[in-house]
Amino acid sequence: MLTNELAYSKAVAYIMSLLSWDKLNFIYNFVLANIVYGVIVIIGVMLFVVIFGWVERKVMAKAQFRHGPTKVGPYGFFQNIADALKLLSKENFIPESADKYLFVSSIVFILAILLFSMLIVPFSGGIYAVDLSVALLAIFVLLSVLPILIFVAGWSSGNKFGSISAQRSIIMMVSYEMPMLMVIAAVALAAHSFSFFSIVGAQSNMYFAVLMPIGFVVFFIAMLAELERPPFDIREADSELISGWLTDVGAPFYASVLIVDYARMLLGSLLIVLLFFGGWQGPFLPKVAWLLIKVFIVAIFIIVLRATYVRMRLDRLLRFGWLWLLPLSIINLIWVYFFMVWGVIL
C-alpha cells in the first residue's frame, strides 16, 4: 500500500511539475491569449462591418438626396443585420456547372485570409497579436493571394461573366501590385523596418504622407484597386458583368462576401493610416480612438469616391498602372532615399 501511495504521490508530483505555473503561463500567453485576441478581432471586424455598412449606405444616400435605411433600429442602424439574416435564411445555391469544392472553399479562404491578416496589424501600442519584424511584407503577401483566390472563385463558378471577372482580376493585379510594393519599399526605407511599430514610431515627427506625398497618392490609388472600390471596381462591375465573380454566389456565401468587402475596406484604411498618417499617434485621446478616427475619415473618403466616380476601363487601368503609378513610385523611392541620406543632416 505504502509503495503504491508513494508511487501515486510521485506521479502526481511529476504531473504537477509538468504543468508548472510557468508552463501554464506559457500556454496562456502564447495560445490562449492569441485565441482570445483573435475572437476579439473578429468581433471588432464584424462591428466595423455593421457600422460601416450603415455609414456607407447613409453617406451614399446623402450624396444622392435620399434617406437611406430608416426603418430597422435607430436611423436604420440594424438594416445590414436584417439584410444579412435574410441572406442567411435563403437557400445556398451552387450552380451545376461550378466546380463545387473550389467555388465554396475559395470564398471561405478569402474571408479567412482577411481575418488572418487582421492579426498581424496592430491597433495601438498595446493591442496586437504578434509583432512580426516582417509584418508589412507578410500583409502584402497575404493581400496578393486575394486576387488569385478571386480568380479561382470566378473561374470555378462556371459562369462566363465570372470567368471574365477572374481574368480581369489577374490583369488588375499585374497593374497595381508593383507600384504598391515600390511604395512599401520606400516606407520601409524611411522607417528602417518592416515592423508596424517602428513605422508608426518613425512618424512621430512627420507623417509619411507629408514626407512622400507622391508615394501616398500612388499607394492610395493602388489600395483602391486592391479593395475593388470605384473607380476600380472592374472585377465586379455591376453594369457590365452583372456582379463578376459574385454572379453565381448563393445567398449565404454572398453574406460572407459582404463581410469580406468591408473587412477589406477596414484593412485597407488601417494600412493607409498606419503607413502614412502616423497610426495611433495623437494628443489627449486614447491611442485606439485616434486610430479609429483616422480609419473612419479615410473610409468615408473612399465612400465619397464611390458616389462620384465612374468606372475605369481595364486596359486604361493597366496603362495607368505601368505608365504613371510605377514611374511615380520609383521617383518616390529615390526621393525617400535622398531624404534619408541628406535630409537628416539638413
Partner: peptide, 17 residues
C-alpha cells in the same frame, strides 16, 4: 448612361429628381 459606365446611381438620382 452614367449608371452604365459605372457610377453608383448618383447621377441617376440627381437627374431623376
Amino acid at each position: 448612361m452614367c449608371n452604365d459606365i459605372g457610377q453608383m446611381f448618383s447621377m441617376f438620382m440627381w437627374t431623376m429628381r
